[in-house]
Design a protein around this nucleic acid. Sequence first.
DNA 1: GTAGAGAATTGGTCTAACCATTCGGGAGAC
DNA 2: GTCTCCCGAATGGTTAGACCAATTCTCTAC
Lengths: 250, 250
Amino acid sequence: MSEKKSEDAGSTGEIQGAEQVIRHVALLIEQGRLKPGDRLPPERELAQELRVSRPTIRAGLHALAAMGVTESRQGAGTFIPHGPPRLGSGPLSFLAALHGFTRDEVFEARRVLEVGAAGMAAERGLTDRLAPMAEEVAGMFASMTEPQTFLLHDVRFHRAVAAAAGNPVLLALVEMVSSLVYERRRRTVERALDLKESAEMHRRIYQAIRDRNPERAREEMSRHLDLARMAQASEESQAGVLPSHGVGSA
Amino acid sequence: MSEKKSEDAGSTGEIQGAEQVIRHVALLIEQGRLKPGDRLPPERELAQELRVSRPTIRAGLHALAAMGVTESRQGAGTFIPHGPPRLGSGPLSFLAALHGFTRDEVFEARRVLEVGAAGMAAERGLTDRLAPMAEEVAGMFASMTEPQTFLLHDVRFHRAVAAAAGNPVLLALVEMVSSLVYERRRRTVERALDLKESAEMHRRIYQAIRDRNPERAREEMSRHLDLARMAQASEESQAGVLPSHGVGSA
DNA sequence: GTAGAGAATTGGTCTAACCATTCGGGAGAC
DNA sequence: GTCTCCCGAATGGTTAGACCAATTCTCTAC
């Protein structure tokens, strides 16, 4: 009963529908005809080219947008974002909500990633990546009375460490997991108790990386994340019951 | 005639359009009214409920599907997948193609994740997770003349190790990164030279975890991935120029 | 030369229909 | 009574044409 359908196989294969749009864009990317910052052809043009209707094109583009591959701006066009490689936090947020990831589990995954990143950063010793980290540490010490600002520097410090590891894949993963934590932390950071101690821990991490001491960098990062996990648990218990990992869209 | 913009604005806010669909589903999940395995309401019903047209609903559902949150089957309905938490490889594949991740970078990220996972698996020593690993090792020794089958066991062994770490977040990350590697490896594994040595390395990793020796587990996993990276480089150089990281859809 | 208004471009949405697949229930055969 | 087969309802997939909204470009007026 498995009679084949139309054999009009074009260059994109026989796939029909929204899936075809994704394949087409993937092909353009592989061929180097689409790079970060570029604009895709208008929807109407794509529709004509792929011989499908515009809503079908739009379905495919929505899927690409959800994967973070494209961004659409009404009136302007659909673009491939430039900037560093970035995995959206959406998928992980949904998984967290669906499967009830605990705070400890998320922190544990984060520790694996960030301890590794801290070690790599220390080993590699890319000197031009030191200043961004140092600046964020300074920012923390300067904002100990403004928890939200402090948290911002905190986020950026960890991102800077991941960047100093010099591996874009690792950086994207760190950002994806971190964003889960920070989305949640933003609501409770006002209750934080020991911002000064936190700032000093970050400083020690920085110093270990600066001194190109991977062992110490790993240790300090590991200890820091353990303490941060407990601190967050404490903040949340003060705040009462929170909705489980929100499905934040960032 | 609804003069007013629908004032039914529930807790979903006043967001209009496809975004609203995503928020709505996210809300249902947070409230526990949608769990893995469940079926979503039919599109026509959602459209009526959210006061938007069906194409808009469909756009949102396509976005959710791209994030791996839902799966649609024509004639049956739209479902939330059951099974373990899973991050699709699509987003990472696109990032790889767009930013030209090198093989070494991907392996490096993989090493951070899997060395951590191996260590955790050994520390935790969940005895009921040992058998799956052992079975895959056996499968490798049994399929040294069939590279594709060998590769399958290889994939599943690494997944089993990540599962033995007992952290679903880490498991999802490992699978996402691994799938990038394996998608690529599938094309060159026929040229593999030392499947026996590879099988024995996997066996040593298993033994270290079984013996609850985290240090050795980490070491063995690290060494294995380094060798695997070089092996794959060798296979690819034999195969000539390959298209850069394909945007595989899995 | 510059600033503003208008036109063209482009993504966002709607309505209304038809197609393709799946699944369940009822009719018929045994 | 049980089983099998088929048909129709339910549901996702696609199409078509139209209109709205935001952006961008261009051309005019000063």
